[in-house]
Every structure is written in structure tokens, then in C-alpha cells.
Amino acid sequence: MPPQNTQPKYRQIAEYLREGILNGTYPAGQPLPSEETLAKQFGVTRPTVRQGLTELRASGLVEVIMGRGTFARSPQTRPSHTRPRGIRRTPDGGYVEADGIRWANAEPPVATRTDAPLALADLLRIPPGEPMFTYDALQTADNGRLRQLHRTYVPFSVLIDTKYEEEAPPPAPELYAALGDLGHELHFTEYIRTRMPLPDQAQALRLPEGVPLLHITRVTLTATEKPLALEEFHLPGDDLELSFRL
């Protein structure tokens, strides 16, 4: 006689669906059985079914689309979008992103003053608390289908004895040309990690529950590896992969 399953019913439902998603019974993008069907199958109420689905949403294995139902999201499925990372020079001396995407700011970014937190100060090799020009932008492309949050930091100390002591420098990517005009040969280093979004980030990027962020930190450096500026990019991490030429 097989051992009796002593797990709570909602967890049994979650495990049943998780196994079906991982073994391909429910392919990515396909609808899962309805709440009513699962409730009858397991002899429970619909709120119990929803509790099991909530577990799967938190782990990123299902997506609930209002008015359409609940859909599988397999971790083995290749993302729909592949974006090359990097920066290239244009013939006129400008800088463009390697992915060629033309981003538009939802609103014109405005320079604000912030004090460098410890983690960013370490990357920029400046004292914690040093003032910085900071720009924030929600950027969209492809008629709003693609979204990212972009933040630019420029330490005040980088701008000493330049015209930008009297006026704010432009945000990236225009910042690169401005730094080049100051005589710097630019190089870039990126750091990439994932984390769960803050509530305002999830709202701005329209992220379903359980979807992580790709958090990219880009440091702009001189030829002698002196940091000049830092950028942060936050992108949806559910249907996107990044590629690099080595």
C-alpha cells in the first residue's frame, strides 16, 4: 500500500503542477487546468487551489493573465529575446549600445544630487557620501513592449576643473561623448546579477509576481582604469538572455 501523502492539499496541487511543467506535460505558454478542474480533481475548494498556484507564481513557474487564465512558464525554455551587451563607437565618434535598440525616455531625466552609498563608492573608488549627479529614467522601445530602468551616476570629483563644475553633465549615453571631449579614452566594465524587484520597480517594468530583475552595473573607466561614472540598468529577467562576444 503506497504511503499516504500527508502534505497540505494546496502543496500537493503545487507539486503536481510543478512536476507537469518541468516534465513538459504543461509546455511553457500553455494554459494550466482551470481552478474548477483542479478543485474537483483534488477534492478541495477553489481558494485552496489558488493557494497552490500562489506558491508556483512565487517560484516563477506560472503566470496569471487576467481574463485569460493561468499559464505555464518552464525554466528550460529559451528566452524570446537575446540582447548583445557592450558599447561600440560610431564613425562620427559617438557611442551606441551593441544591441542597437533605440530607447526613448518616458520623461526627460533631470539631474539630482545624491550621496554615494558604500557599495557604489567602492566601485567608483570615491569616499562614501561623496556627492554625485544622478539621473533616473524609465526607458521604452518597440512601442512600449521593451522596458528598462536606467540610472546614471557621475561623482562631483570627476568634474573638478572642467566646464561641468558650473553645469550638470548629460546622462549616459550622451555622457560618453562629453567625457571623451574632456580628453578621456573610455573603457567599460559590467557586473550582472539577478534579484527580486522592489514594488515600484515591478510596477514600472510591468513584472508579474515571481519574476526577477536583471541588475546590470556598468562602470565607465579611463585608459588607466580610473572610474569616471556608473550606470545601473534594471531589466525584466523572465524572457531575456544577454550575450557577450569574448
Rank of each mutant, 00 (worst) to 15 (best):
D239R: 02
M196I: 03
T114W: 05
P227I: 10
R193K: 10
E174R: 11
A178R: 11
L53H: 11
V211C: 09
L138V: 14
P128Q: 09
G60P: 04
V110I: 12
T54N: 10
Y164S: 05
T112W: 00
P91M: 08
R78L: 15
D122C: 10
E97T: 07
A168V: 01
D161K: 15
A119Q: 09
T112N: 12
Q4I: 15
V49M: 11
L221A: 08
Q76S: 14
A39S: 07
P109T: 10
P2N: 10
I101M: 14
F233G: 01
P155M: 05
R125S: 11
L56N: 01
Q7N: 09
I216P: 01
P173V: 12
A14H: 07
L146H: 06
P127Y: 05
V219D: 04
G67I: 04
I216T: 13
P33T: 08
A28L: 00
R11F: 11
Y191A: 04
Q4K: 13
G100N: 03
V219N: 07
Y135F: 13
I126G: 01
E190Y: 05
R50N: 09
R46T: 13
M196Y: 15
P127Q: 11
S157T: 15
S80T: 14
E55A: 13
L118K: 05
E241K: 07
I216F: 00
E174A: 14
T82G: 01
R193C: 14
G69E: 02
Q30P: 01
G237D: 06
T220C: 15
E97W: 12
A119P: 02
L61T: 01
R147C: 06
E209N: 05
L213W: 04
I216G: 01
Y135V: 00
A119H: 09
L56F: 07
A116W: 01
D99V: 04
E232V: 08
R46H: 04
G67Q: 00
E185S: 15
E97G: 13
E107F: 10
R68A: 15
G100A: 12
T70W: 09
D161H: 13
P109W: 02
N23I: 14
S157Y: 06
E190A: 13
L123M: 03
H184L: 07
N23E: 15
R193Y: 13
F42A: 14
G69W: 04
L182D: 01
P79V: 12
A104M: 12
T6K: 08
Q7V: 00
L214G: 01
V49F: 08
E15W: 13
R88A: 12
I13N: 04
G129R: 01
S34W: 07
P109L: 02
P117I: 09
K226S: 09
R18L: 11
M132R: 04
N105S: 13
R83N: 11
D99R: 03
G129S: 05
